[in-house]
Design a binder for these strands. Structure first.
Length: 885
DNA sequence: AGTGTCACG
DNA sequence: ACGTACGTGACACTC
C-alpha cells in the first residue's frame, strides 16, 4: 500500500526555528531552522519508509481567507529575517533530498495538504500529516494520521481519530468548531471573547457544533448567553476561517510525489554547503563528493622517485612554470611536524615528491628551486610549510601567494581554512576532506601511496583555482595592498622569529617551581583544614559543593552546569569566610605551576634551550596575531609572583641584552585619529596622561584635583569605550550600579562628542555595508548587526565599534614589524626580533648595538604610519625579559 | 569534546 | 524586558 507523508513546511520551519538556538554557518547565514527541518526529515524517512512525500508551503501573503476577512493573520509579528532567509535553503535542501514540494498562490500549506488527504481517502493511501498546528487535526481519518510536533521538532504526538476523541471528546471535524468558538490569536481569528478551550469543549460536548450552540443560545445563561448572542457572526466567520479548504486546484498528479530516495553525492553536497558536519557523519556521507574522485582521476599525477630519470627530467622542465605548490604537513605544531611530500602543479602534470625522495641528491635541483627567492610560489598555509620544511633542512623562499592567508583577509571570521572547505566556499569542484582520507584522532592513518598522492595532487590542483579567484577578490575589496604589502611579507618575518626562538633558562623556572610547590602544598593543607575535609580544589564542582553546600556561603552567580566559583565571585565572598583568600591564592599559584612552570618547561628544546612559538596569522577576527605551542603572548606580568617567570627569558648569546618596546596607549590614539575627536587628539598631541585627562573631563575637575579613584574609574571608562561600551559592562567592571555607569558614559560622550559621533556612525555604517574596516582596509563582516535578537545585535554593535580600533592597532604593529625586519637586514645588524605581544616587540641585542637599537626600535614603531596624533613607543632593556620593563 | 577558569593585550 | 564588556590560548576537570 502507498504511504504518503505530507509536511506543512512553514509550520515545521517555524517550530524548528524557535526550538533551536541560532546557528550560523561560515558565511553568516542562519541555519537552525534548516537543521531542525533536516533532522525531522531524516527521522521520518527512517521510521516511516514512505512511498510518497511532499512538503507544502504557503504562497503569497493574501489568500482566499482574506477576501471575507481582511484582518486574517493581522497583527502578526513579521517573520524574523533570521528565519525568512532560511526558506530558500530549506527548499534547496528538499531538492537535494529528492522530496517534492508544492505551493500555490492564494492558498496556504494546510489547504494543499487538506486537498491531498481527501485524494488519499479516495485512492486508499495511508497518510501521515506532519505539522506544528493543531488545526490539522480536522484532517484525521481512518487512513490519515496527524502528527503534531511537541517541544521542538524531534518529538511528535500522533493523532488518530480515536486519540482525538480520547483527548478532546470530539470527532476530527469538530476541531473546526472548537476553533470557531475559541478563536486563534496567532491567526487573528476572533472566536467568541471569553471562551477558551475549556468552555468551548463543554459547549461542543453539549451541542455538537457552532451552529448547534447558536441554535440553543436560549438555553445558555448570564454572561455566556450575552457573549454568544453578541458574537454570533464572529463565531460563524471564525469557523469558516478555520476550515481547511480541500478542493485546491492541484495541477499535478499524486505520482509526482513518489519518493525514490536521495542521491548520496547530491545530499552530501547540500549538507556540506550548510556545514552540517554531524549529519554528514551520521549518514556516512563525509567521503561522498561532487566529483572529487573524478577530479583526482582526471589529473595527470606523477609520483617522483629519485631513480626515475624520466620523471626527473619532466620535473626539471616543469619547474619553469609551476602554478601551485602544496606540501602535506602532518601535525598541529609546525615545529614538530612531519612533512610527507612536496607537490607542484604545472599546466599538464602534477608532480608529487615524497619527502624521502626529496632528500636524495638527485633531487637537489628541486630543493634549490624551493630555496630560490626569485621563483614565485603560490600555495596553501606556506607559513606553516616554511617552518616544517626548515626543520627538515629545506628552505622555502619566494612565497608570493597563500590561499589560506588570502581567505582569512577576505573573511577573517570564516573558520573554513582547509583546501576542501575553500573549494566548497568558492564553488569549485570539491576535493576530499583530509579527515575522510586520513581519519582523525587515534584512527589517523596515511593511505597507500597511490591514494595519498592522488589526494595531495587534487589539493595542489585546487590551490591554483582558488588563488585565481582570490586575487580578483582582493582587488575588488580593496585589500590587495594590505595583502601583498603587509600580510604576505609579514608571514616571512614571523617565520624568521619563530625559527630563531627565544632562549629560556630552565633552571630559573625550576627554581620558581620548587618554591611554588611548597607554597601550594601549605595552602592546600590550610584549605582542607578550613573546609573540614579534603577535596580537589581544582574541580569547580567539588569547590562549589564545599563553598555553597557544606559551608553555606551565598550563591552569587551560576553557570549553566552549577555554581560559579570564578575570581569575581570569590572576591565577593571574602567577607563571609576566611577560606576564600586561601582559595584565591591557591588558584593563582596553581595556574603559575601548571601553565607557566610545567607548561613552559615542556616547550624548551633540550639541545638549544630555546622555545619556538608559532604565530597564527589567520585566527583573530580583528587582524591580531595569536601565539601557540606555547602561547608567549600571555606570560604573566600583572602580579609580581607571576612576573618572575619573565626572568627565565634571556638572550641566546652571552653579553647580549633583551630589549622591549611597547606602544603607549595605541588603541586610544587610534580612536583619536579615526574619530577625529578634537579633545582626544589634543590630549595626545600634548602627551597628557590620558586617564587623568579623561577623569578631569568626565568629573569636571582640574587635572591636579583628580584622585587615584577617579583616575581608576576613568581608566575603566576608556577601556569600555575601546570595547564598545555598555552601561551593563562598565557597571560590572567597576562594581557600581548600571545607572551610575550610564551616567559616566553620558558624561564621557558629552566631553568627547567626536567619539560619540564615531560610535554612532560606525554602527550605522556596519548596518549599511554589512562590514567594518580598519585604517588599512582590513574587513570584518558583521551579519548579526541586523539580528532581531537584542543580545546578538548588541554584540555585533560592540564589535563594530571595537574592531576598527583593535584592528588598526594590529595593522600598525604589523607594519612596524615588516619595517623593523627590513631595517635589521639593511643595516646588517645582528640584533633579532623575537616576540610580538600585540603592542610590544621584544628583541635580543648585542651590547654594541644597544644604543642604536634603543633609538631605532621606537623610531620605526612611531613612524610605522602617520596619524593625526603622534604614536609613542617606550623602550627598555635588561639581562632578561623581566628586567626589560 | 565541552566547560570553567585564568593568563595576556 | 532583554543581560555582555573586545581579542586570544592553555590547563584541569568531567562526561
Amino acid at each position: 500500500m502507498e504511504k504518503w507523508i505530507l509536511i506543512d513546511g512553514n509550520s515545521i520551519a517555524f517550530r524548528a526555528f524557535y526550538a533551536l538556538p541560532l546557528l550560523t554557518n561560515a558565511s553568516g547565514l542562519h541555519t537552525n531552522a534548516v537543521f531542525g527541518f533536516t533532522t525531522m526529515l531524516l527521522k521520518l524517512l527512517e521510521e516511516e519508509q514512505p512511498t510518497h512525500m511532499l512538503v507544502a508551503f504557503d504562497a503569497g501573503k493574501i489568500t482566499f481567507r482574506h477576501e471575507g476577512y481582511s484582518e486574517y493573520k493581522g497583527g502578526r509579528q513579521k517573520t524574523p529575517s533570521e528565519l525568512s532567509e532560511q526558506f530558500p535553503l530549506i527548499k534547496e535542501l528538499l531538492q537535494a533530498f529528492g522530496i517534492s514540494q508544492f505551493e500555490l498562490s492564494g492558498y496556504e500549506a494546510d489547504d494543499i495538504i487538506g486537498t491531498l488527504t481527501r485524494m488519499a481517502d479516495e485512492q486508499g493511501a495511508e497518510v501521515l500529516v506532519v505539522s506544528g498546528d493543531k488545526d490539522m487535526l480536522q484532517l484525521a481519518s481512518d487512513q490519515v494520521t496527524v502528527a503534531i510536533t511537541r517541544k521542538g521538532v524531534g518529538d511528535v504526538d500522533r493523532y488518530s481519530p480515536a486519540l482525538i476523541h480520547e483527548r478532546y471528546g470530539l470527532a476530527p471535524l469538530q476541531i473546526i468548531d472548537l476553533k470557531g468558538l475559541m478563536g486563534d490569536t496567532s491567526d487573528n481569528i476572533p472566536g467568541i471573547p471569553g471562551v477558551g478551550e475549556k468552555t468551548a469543549l463543554k459547549l461542543l460536548h453539549e451541542y455538537g457544533s457552532v451552529e448547534g450552540v447558536l441554535e440553543h443560545v436560549a438555553d445558555l445563561k448570564g454572561k455566556m448567553k450575552e457573549k454568544v448572542e453578541q458574537h454570533k457572526d464572529d463565531a460563524i466567520m471564525s469557523k469558516k476561517l478555520a476550515t481547511i479548504f480541500r478542493e485546491v486546484p492541484l495541477d499535478r498528479g499524486t505520482s509526482e510525489m513518489a519518493y525514490g530516495g536521495y542521491d548520496r553525492p547530491t545530499l552530501a553536497g547540500a549538507l556540506r554547503k550548510l556545514e552540517f558536519k554531524s549529519l554528514l557523519e551520521r549518514l556516512d556521507l563525509t567521503g561522498e563528493g561532487t566529483g572529487s574522485t573524478v577530479a583526482a582521476a582526471e589529473l595527470n599525477v606523477v609520483s617522483v622517485a629519485a631513480h626515475d630519470e624520466d620523471a626527473l627530467s619532466a620535473l626539471a622542465a616543469g619547474l619553469r612554470s609551476v602554478e601551485s605548490v602544496y606540501v602535506e604537513v602532518i601535525g598541529e605544531n609546525p615545529h614538530q611536524s612531519e612533512t610527507i611530500a612536496v607537490a607542484l602543479a604545472t599546466a599538464d602534470v602534477i608532480f608529487v615528491v615524497p619527502m624521502a625522495e626529496l632528500q636524495a641528491s638527485a633531487l637537489g635541483f628541486v630543493r634549490e628551486w624551493l630555496a630560490d627567492a626569485d621563483m614565485e610560489k603560490a600555495g596553501f598555509d606556506l607559513h606553516r610549510t616554511e617552518l616544517s620544511l626548515a626543520w627538515h633542512g629545506i628552505a622555502l623562499k619566494g612565497i608570493s601567494f597563500d590561499i589560506q592567508l588570502a581567505a582569512y583577509l577576505l573573511d577573517p571570521t570564516d573558520s573554513t581554512q582547509s583546501i576542501s572547505g575553500l573549494c566548497g566556499k568558492y564553488g569549485l569542484p570539491t576535493v576530499q576532506a583530509d579527515e575522510s582520507v586520513y581519519g582523525k584522532g587515534a584512527k589517523f592513518k596515511l593511505p597507500e601511496a597511490g591514494v595519498l598522492h592522488g589526494h595531495i595532487a587534487s589539493k595542489t590542483d585546487a590551490v591554483r583555482s582558488i588563488a585565481a579567484i582570490q586575487r580578483e577578490e582582493l582587488e575588488k575589496t580593496g585589500m590587495h595592498k594590505l595583502y601583498y604589502d603587509l600580510e604576505q611579507p609579514l608571514s616571512r618575518v614571523l617565520a624568521g622569529m619563530e625559527l630563531q626562538g627565544i632562549r629560556c633558562d630552565a633552571s630559573v623556572i625550576e627554581q620558581l617551581g620548587a618554591e611554588l610547590e611548597s607554597r601550594i602544598s601549605d595552602i592546600m593543607t590550610k584549605v582542607y583544614t578550613l573546609a573540614g575535609m579534603e577535596f580537589n580544589i581544582n574541580s569547580p564542582r567539588q569547590l562549589g559543593e564545599v563553598l555553597f553546600e557544606k559551608l553555606g556561603l551565598p550563591v552569587i552567580k551560576k553557570t549553566k552546569t552549577g555554581y560559579s566559583t570564578d575570581a569575581d565571585v570569590l572576591e565577593k565572598l571574602e567577607p563571609y569566610h576566611e577560606i576564600i583568600p586561601s582559595i584565591l591564592l591557591f588558584r593563582q599559584l596553581a595556574k603559575l605551576q601548571s601553565t607557566y612552570v610545567e607548561g613552559l618547561l615542556k616547550e624548551i628544546r633540550p639541545n638549544t634551550g630555546k622555545i619556538h612559538t608559532y604565530y597564527r596569522q589567520t585566527i583573530a577576527a580583528t587582524g591580531r596575531l595569536s601565539s601557540q605551542y606555547p602561547n608567549l603572548q600571555n606570560i604573566p606580568i600583572r602580579l609580581e609572583e607571576g612576573r618572575q617567570i619573565r626572568k627565565a627569558f634571556v638572550p641566546s648569546e652571552p653579553g647580549w641584552f633583551m630589549l622591549a618596546a611597547d606602544y603607549s596607549q595605541i588603541e586610544l590614539r587610534v580612536l583619536a585619529h579615526i574619530s577625529g575627536d578634537e579633545g582626544l587628539k589634543e590630549a595626545f598631541v600634548q602627551d597628557l596622561d590620558i586617564h587623568t585627562k579623561t577623569a578631569s573631563d568626565v568629573f569636571g575637575v582640574r587635572p591636579e584635583d583628580v584622585d587615584a579613584n577617579m583616575r581608576r574609574q576613568a581608566k575603566a571608562v576608556n577601556f569600555g569605550i575601546v570595547y564598545g561600551i555598555s552601561d551593563f559592562g562598565l557597571s560590572n567592571n567597576l562594581n557600581i550600579t548600571r545607572k551610575e555607569a550610564a551616567q559616566f558614559i553620558e558624561q564621557y560622550f558629552a566631553a568627547f562628542q567626536g567619539v560619540r559621533r564615531y560610535m554612532d556612525n560606525i554602527v550605522a555604517q556596519a548596518r549599511t555595508d554589512g562590514y567594518v574596516t580598519t585604517l588599512l582596509e582590513r574587513r570584518r563582516y558583521l551579519p548579526e548587526i541586523k539580528a532581531s535578537n537584542f543580545n546578538i545585535r548588541s554584540f555585533a554593535e560592540r564589535t563594530a565599534m571595537n574592531t576598527p580600533i583593535q584592528g588598526t592597532a594590529a595593522d600598525i604593529i604589523k607594519l612596524a614589524m615588516v619595517r623593523m625586519d627590513e631595517q635589521l637586514r639593511a643595516r646588517g645588524l645582528r640584533s633579532r626580533m623575537l616576540l610580538q605581544v600585540h603592542d610590544e616587540l621584544v628583541f635580543e641585542v648585542p651590547a654594541d648595538e644597544l644604543e642604536l637599537m634603543k633609538e631605532l626600535v621606537p623610531q620605526v614603531m612611531e613612524s610605522a604610519i602617520k596619524l593625526d596624533v603622534p604614536l609613542k613607543a617606550d623602550v627598555s632593556f635588561g639581562d632578561n625579559w623581566y628586567e626589560a620593563k
